[in-house]
Nucleic acid binder design. Structure first.
Length: 930
RNA sequence: GGGCGCGUAGCACAGCUGGUUAGCGCAUCUCCCUUACAAGGAGAGGGUCGUAGGUUCGAAUCCUACCGCGCCCACCA
């Protein structure tokens, strides 16, 4: 047997086993009708992503479930992949080329996209490599990227289907515009944050009058686009002003005072400036009152030619300038500090500009209905349950989804316009920019007035019949418009990519087979079993996947949704790169090992609760891995290395077992039982902690120590072998690397631990009586150790003998049988066990201590302080008397006896009896001290 | 404005549908380098479970209010 290091070293081991698993294709799942499928679709990381603690937690949870189910005989599929992450990736590449002194506009669409693809090839798999380091058992052969050809087909197909159903439309609305990314954003992509701003009170003078109306606004710069002032019709202060004309300061436009219920008389002055092109509410008011929509900004949020003297200045510069100018004209009444919420771009955090533009939308209300019903009926369950409400609330109030983005990286919208038949597009054709056209936002707005032909391939124009002048819509789709198809698009749905092509219009045979197989696999694995994700993307992704599942597959995409908590630092702040408080999982892996990271993470994660982390917490997992390593090392050292195979076969016969052996087996199987329940209910932390407790504090602390007494014995060896080998299987999903490494030493040449079956629960080993008996032994040992510690005896003060007096024949029997255990664990040479008056034998040469069934005395060479000894027992007596008092009262309570379940009462009675006995015993002992 | 979560030992957390004397880890203190493991072993101390009511035979657990902390959603300019 090779010498093993006394410290577990994870260097080299992790990569070695990961490659081994890959080579053996353990992560690859196939349709297998003899097995039940278990499948998970990974929340696809962005290609720009690097592994952070949130990923580490999310993927560890999934990996545990995947490995657990695989060992339980399921066909376990973990479908991986990455998202193209339109805006995020485009931003990264734009920054990169900016360092080279270029802009994407200078490069042009085609060249820029080449750059992005290049970047993706180079860096896009970073996160995949990192997931591998984490040990993820993903079926990498199936990895799909949202921009893969096959996947893109699904995206386009879905767009076309929804369009044909009338569920995709174009509309002119106020959308969230990010002036930095220069694209529209969905509502979910523009989270509102509270900011400290000001409320500016501005005087709006009436025409031909010295009077004015004061309006309050947080964004004075938008006044350049004002086309009315609104008051509440019920507001008596302003009633007679309705219909009057105001001269809009700075720009000298005549606007009217209108009446609208929207206006809250309580807020500000009760008079609101109305900017229909730059505010959601004002837009609606504009519609109601037929106001003019004046867009004063260009897409980069600079004032445009409609903003008079301010043209060309940035929106925030314009704000300052306008304030100054208003002050100068004595039109600024006052400025008050004011907190309000403002939308921010979820990618670059720039303040959103509400912007009137023509965009593509998905009509969500009808699509959401089956997804609402499924959750209400419980066909899809959230864990923990509370997220159900969050989901339902969003689904029931769902807004139409803005899916067009004015960026280049993404799936291009399959809408076409004929440049020949639409005179507005002539200019555009003349530019000769064709399919890779770079179209400005204004031009997009022009396009939006033209009826498109929606088609995957370039279509022929309805009017002129030619495809020659067809121009494709330059916009791309929201990344989530591809992500929401993941549970089925990853299987090749809708299976159109093997279209008849050049070769005589026939499918090649293997292509045909491939499609057939994919269809069967989709049927087999869909719906997937569980989705594991963070609360942040319930709306972005979870809800939309459910919608897509019902719309395109007529079925929910998964049955369970496990929402885990957010990873926070130990002061409760969300871990993020920008806050600089993140702990890099790769650093932890390097320092403590992957298994330590995983085990620490999981044992710290109560279901659905946020996880608070600090670096020290990872020592917990590391120490445990080391403990497992050393326990295994000890066992290996004592097994016959030539005969390892024999231990595996050795049948353990219950009737021949010594108490400790029977006990540890009983403990093992109850542990297994509890672990199974916990894992079936997604309570991973509980499962981890139960195994931890068993392995360390029962198996190692007690059984291994006792096994040393009979380590030469084959049966002891067989028990050690069995427990450690089976425990490693339980541990494997949590700590795959170290469990494999050690398991291989116990069962060399037997494949992988991952192929082994999960331990079968054999309840016949679970025996309460036996656990009680073992507890007597444990109590005695603990008491003896205690005696020594509490009196602070030095070794020389003690004569290593113990006199144990027991109060029952049964306990006596157990203790006599287990003398050797006590000698070993309590460190005594001689034991005298007797069932006699427990109060006898006090003397100043003996220290004493009582347990539930015994009184233990040990001879010491120094004199016992009788007073102290007496006090010790007195305080015990006090404590027990209090319990007795309480229980007496309880058991004398008629209502209790009537209403409490009988087993509870029985237990209570029994416990009272025991306490009374113990009290009696303690009193006797105390009285004997004198 | 609505919704959700959390306040349990110095710190960070468990405690599942209410039922023994409320637990784990870290930290602290004492002893021990006992030939698997000092990343270890043996022990100890430390909590009126945020506050106040209520329901109940019985409350950390259920209800109500309040006080703190955090998150999410919402068009109050």
């Amino acid at each position: 047997m090779e010498e093993l290091a006394t410290k577990y070293s994870f260097d080299d081991i992790e990569e070695k086993w990961y490659n081994f698993w890959l080579e053996k294709e353990f992560f690859h799942a196939r349709k297998n009708l003899s097995k039940t499928p278990f499948s998970i679709v990974i929340p696809p990381p962005n290609v720009t992503g690097i592994l952070h603690m949130g990923h580490a937690l999310n993927n560890t949870i999934q990996d545990i479930l995947i490995r657990f189910k695989k060992m339980n005989g399921f066909e376990s599929l973990w479908m991986p992949g990455t998202d193209h992450a339109g805006i995020a990736t485009q931003n990264v590449v734009e920054r990169k080329i900016a360092r080279e002194g270029m802009t994407r506009q200078q490069l042009g669409r085609e060249k820029f996209l080449e750059n992005v693809w290049q970047w993706k090839e180079e860096y896009g798999s970073t996160i995949i490599r990192q997931l591998k380091r984490l040990g993820c058992a993903c079926d990498w052969q199936r990895a799909r990227f949202t921009m893969d050809e096959e996947y893109s087909d699904a995206v386009i197909e879905v767009f076309i289907r929804l369009f044909k159903k009338g569920l995709i439309y174009r509309g002119n609305y106020i959308i969230n515009w990010c002036p930095r990314c220069q694209t529209a954003l969905a509502d979910e992509e523009a989270p509102h944050k509270e900011i400290d701003g000001f409320l500016y009170y501005i005087k709006y003078p009436f025409k031909n009058s010295s009077q004015y109306l004061v309006v309050a606004t947080t964004r004075p710069e938008t006044m350049l686009g004002d086309t009315a002032v609104a008051v509440n019709p019920k507001d008596l202060r302003y009633n007679d002003l309705i219909g009057k004309t105001i001269i809009l300061p700075l720009i000298d436009r005549e606007i009217l005072v209108i009446a609208d219920d929207f206006v809250d008389p309580e807020f500000g002055t009760g008079a609101v400036k109305v900017t229909p092109a730059h505010d959601q509410n004002d837009y609606l008011m504009g519609k109601r009152h037929n106001l003019e929509f004046i867009n004063i900004f260009s897409p980069d949020a600079r004032c445009n030619e409609l903003s008079g003297d301010y043209a060309g200045s940035d929106r925030f510069e314009a704000r300052q300038a306008i304030i100054e100018d208003l002050k100068e004209r004595k039109l600024l009444e006052k400025v008050v500090a004011h907190k309000h919420t403002v939308g921010h771009c979820y990618r670059c955090h720039t303040v959103i500009e509400p912007y009137l533009s023509k965009q593509w939308f998905v009509k969500m209300k009808p699509l959401a209905l089956p997804g609402i019903e499924a959750v209400e009926k419980g066909d899809i369950k959230f864990h923990p349950q509370r997220w159900t409400k969050v989901y339902l609330n969003w689904m029931q109030n769902i807004q139409d989804w803005c899916i067009s983005r004015q960026i280049w990286w993404g799936h291009r919208i399959p809408a076409w316009y004929c440049g020949k038949c639409n005179s507005q597009l002539q200019v555009y054709l003349e530019k000769g920019t064709g399919n890779n056209a770079e179209i400005s936002l204004d031009e997009i707005n022009v396009l939006s007035d033209i009826e498109p032909i929606v088609s995957k391939e370039k279509p022929c124009c309805d009017k002129c019949g030619s495809a020659k002048f067809m121009i494709q819509d330059p916009q791309v789709l929201d990344t989530w418009f591809s992500s929401w198809l993941r549970p089925f698009a990853t299987f090749g749905w809708p299976f159109t990519s093997c279209k008849p092509h050049a070769l005589g219009g026939k499918l090649e045979q293997n292509e045909k087979n491939k499609t057939g197989l994919q269809k069967e696999e989709l049927k087999y694995f869909y719906p997937t079993t569980v989705l594991v994700t963070a609360p942040e993307i319930i709306f972005f992704w979870v809800a939309r996947m459910i919608i897509a599942g019902f719309e395109f597959m007529q079925n929910a995409p998964f049955k369970d949704v496990y929402i885990h908590g957010t990873v926070r630092d130990d002061s409760g702040k969300k871990m993020s790169k920008s806050l600089g408080n993140s702990i890099d999982p790769l650093e932890i892996i390097a320092e403590y090992g992957t298994d330590a990271l995983r085990f620490s993470l999981v044992s710290n994660t109560a279901i659905g609760q946020d996880v608070f982390l600090s670096k020290e917490k990872f020592e917990f997992g590391r120490n445990f891995c080391n403990k497992i390593w050393n326990a295994s090392r000890f066992i290996l050292m004592n097994l016959d290395s030539e005969e390892l195979g024999g231990y595996a076969k050795e049948k353990i016969k219950k009737e021949n077992l010594a108490l400790a052996e029977a006990w540890v087996l009983s403990r093992f199987y109850s542990t297994l039982k509890q672990v199974n329940i916990a894992l079936d209910n997604y309570r991973l932390n509980e499962a981890a902690n139960i195994i931890y407790e068993f392995f360390w504090h029962q198996f190692c602390d007690w059984y291994i120590e006792l096994a040393k007494l009979s380590i030469e014995n084959t049966q002891t060896q067989a028990v050690l072998f069995k427990i450690v080998e089976q425990s490693l299987r339980l541990l494997h999903p949590f700590i795959p690397f170290v469990s494999e490494e050690i398991w291989q030493k116990f069962k060399p040449g037997c494949g992988s631990i991952l192929e082994q079956s999960w331990p079968q629960l054999d309840e016949s080993f679970i025996n309460e009586k036996l656990e009680t008996n073992m507890q007597i032994v444990i109590d005695v040992c603990t008491a003896k150790r205690n005696l020594r510690n509490e009196n602070n005896y030095k070794p020389k003060d003690i004569i290593e003998q113990a006199y144990i007096k027991v109060d029952s024949l049964e306990a006596e029997k157990v203790l006599i049988e287990c003398q050797d255990y006590i000698k070993k664990l309590a460190k005594v040479d001689k034991i005298f066990i007797s069932q006699e008056n427990i109060d006898m034998g006090y003397s100043q040469e003996f220290a004493s201590c009582s347990t539930a069934n015994t009184l233990i005395t040990i001879p010491v060479k120094i004199k016992i302080d009788a007073e102290r000894e007496k006090q010790k027992f007195e305080s015990q007596i006090n404590e027990i008397s209090n319990h007795i008092l309480r229980k007496d009262r309880l058991l004398n309570n008629e209502n209790y006896l009537k209403k409490a379940p009988s087993h509870v009462v029985e237990k209570e009675k029994q416990s009272l009896d025991e306490l009374k006995q113990e009290l009696e015993k303690l009193i006797k002992i105390k009285d004997a001290i004198e």
